[in-house]
Structure formats: structure tokens, C-alpha cells
Simulated assay, not measured.
Amino acid sequence: MARRAYLGYRGDDAGTAFAGFFDPRMAPLPGHVVDALHHGPQADQVLPGFDCAAKLLDEGYQQTETGYGRQPDGGFVVSVRTDMPGVSPAMWDWWFGWHGSDTRRYKLWHPRAHASARWADGGGDGHYLGRTSLIEEYLGSSYARAAIRFVRPAELGLTGPRLAHSVAVCARLGSAELPVDIGWFVHHVRATPEGAEMRSRFWMGGQHIAVRRGNRLSDSLIRPVATRQLPDPRDLLVHCAQEMNHLAGFLAQLYARFSSTPEA
């Protein structure tokens, strides 16, 4: 079995300029997330559909902003809303290009679950579009090695003037060990009077399982195997809520110190 990377900071990890932002103490889950967990799985008809991903750009809110549930094809959907006072959409756009080149940065995001991160191209800081992040992390008690290929929002239908004042981080999610993709996600960040809010959507399993550079036959053959590797949707909801809330608590300060173009 491949050796797992370690959690937390060790040795000279604390010697970086950003190490002061590493804090293993995490705030309690927001009340609306706890309510969603108490509610349990939602009916598939009230969950946001992948074909309607572009509706994230509409004003207002969708029927299930925070929740999870199974789909008829065997897949599942997870939605999470994160309120982020004092944070702007641009800060998240910067974060996704900055954190992936250094595991110690990645651990700032979720100090109790993130173990490793690097760019597949071996490169350093820069924009994330078109690149693949290879990460290792815990989802609940399950250890995952994933490949996150960031794509342009237009690939999921998010285009036009409504995107001009917000940020949509979109990606294909798959295995870092096998040439198989298992889902998609979008983190849409829009401004609010208090700062910003992130509305995350994950579509996993079912029709979204595919062999990279494969075909319909190979997809159908791999689907039963890949389905057994999917994370638990409840664990994914908790993980997303934890990491986004945690980073939002100090992202503005991190951005002001390390971004080359900090906001006024």
C-alpha cells in the first residue's frame, strides 16, 4: 500500500512566511449546515441538476442550497452554501492558483484533513485553469488521492455578463491513481453586502463516471468498480463546509500579504 502523507505541520514546515496562518482549531459547523445534516438525504427532484449548472448565475437561491441526496442513476449531488464576511470573489480566484504548488499552503485550508497537494505539470504559482491538482486528503475517515482538472466555466455553461462580477471555479474530479473521472464540481463565489458567499455543487458518480480517453463501453465496464470508490455524500458535505468556512476566516489577511495585486 502506498504511504500516506502526514497531516499537520512537522519539522521545518513552520518556517515559511505563511505558517502563522496554520491553525488546527476549526470553528463549529454553521447552523444551516447542521440543519441539513439533521434533515438527511434529500429527494432527487429538489437537488440541483448538472444540466442546469448555469442557473448558479441566476439571482436568488435554489431549492437546496445546502444538502445532499442520491440520483436515480446511482450518483449523488452535494450542495453547500458558505457565508464569507470580509472576503471577495477575487480572493478565491487567487487562492486556487496559489495554494496548489505547496502542500504546506494546502494544509492551511483544512488542517485536520489535507495531507498533500502538487500540480501535475510540476509547475509553481500561477493560474489554475487548464491545470490538474493532485491532492491527498481525508473525507471523513476515508483517505483519497484525487486529480482535480480545472476547466473554464463555459464548459459547464457558466458564461455571459452575469459571471463578470463573480468567480466560478469549475473542475472535473477523478482518481490520481487510475485514468478514471468520477464527478464535477463548481464553487460559485458572488459578492454580498457583508463580503461574499460561496455556493458549491458536486455531481458525483452515475453518469459522471468515465474513463479518460475512453468510450461508452469502457465507461460502462468501469462504472461498478468506480462507484465503490466514491466518497460518502454526507462526508463530502461536512468536508466542504469545514474547509471553506475555515479558510474564509483568514483569507482576506492571507491575500493582502501574499497576493501581488491585493485589493484596496
Rank of each mutant, 00 (worst) to 15 (best):
G160T: 05
E177M: 14
R199E: 05
G183V: 02
L57V: 04
E177I: 10
D232H: 09
A14L: 08
E65A: 09
W94H: 12
Q45Y: 03
A113E: 11
G122M: 05
L217G: 00
N215K: 07
G31Q: 15
D125M: 14
P224A: 04
G195Q: 03
D73R: 06
K55V: 12
S260C: 11
D125Y: 08
A19V: 08
T261H: 07
W94A: 15
D51I: 03
H187I: 04
G214N: 04
A226N: 02
A164P: 00
V80H: 02
G160E: 03
V33W: 13
P262C: 06
G206R: 01
R104M: 07
W92A: 01
E197Y: 09
M1N: 05
L158T: 03
T103W: 15
R162M: 06
L37D: 02
K107P: 00
L156K: 06
R228E: 03
T103E: 09
V46G: 01
H239P: 00
M244N: 13
A196C: 10
R190T: 13
V33S: 12
A36E: 03
R162K: 14
D121H: 05
P41F: 09
A147Y: 12
A210I: 00
A264S: 12
L108E: 14
A53I: 00
D73Y: 07
S101E: 03
A27M: 04
L108F: 13
P153I: 07
